[in-house]
Amino acid sequence: MFDLDLRSRQPIYEQLVEKIKELIVNDVMKTDEKLPSVRTLAQEMTINPNTIQKAYRELEMQGYIYSLKGKGSFVDSLTKNISAEEIEKIRNELQKRLTEAFFIGISKEEIYTLVEHTYLDVGGDRKND
């Protein structure tokens, strides 16, 4: 279900966090959809259940999923409670990439167009749905 790179230097739980986030952000996993249980995922992917638990905990802390006792973990509605820390992190990353973009000579206008396109791709202003 998730494709992990066991040869990568990046810790497995971080890879899992990123993969799941990607699925949520791209709307592959919808709000309130149930995530596979730790048991199933451990079995399917041959990954230590403790590692999966850790990834789920991290996702919950960052506000991507919520868990119900005895029922499992579910995708949270995104706009509500992404932590300020996470937003700050993405902002910094964007800034870093933009600096690089300007450096290699991508024009301001091109970046504006890109922003417009991406914005339309994710369906406009989702906050006001």
Partner: peptide, 14 residues
């Protein structure tokens, strides 16, 4: 090896 690891992990999870 993969089979055995998978069996062990199932027992850890279950």
């Amino acid at each position: 090896r993969q089979k055995i690891i998978n069996l062990i992990i199932q027992d850890v999870a279950d």
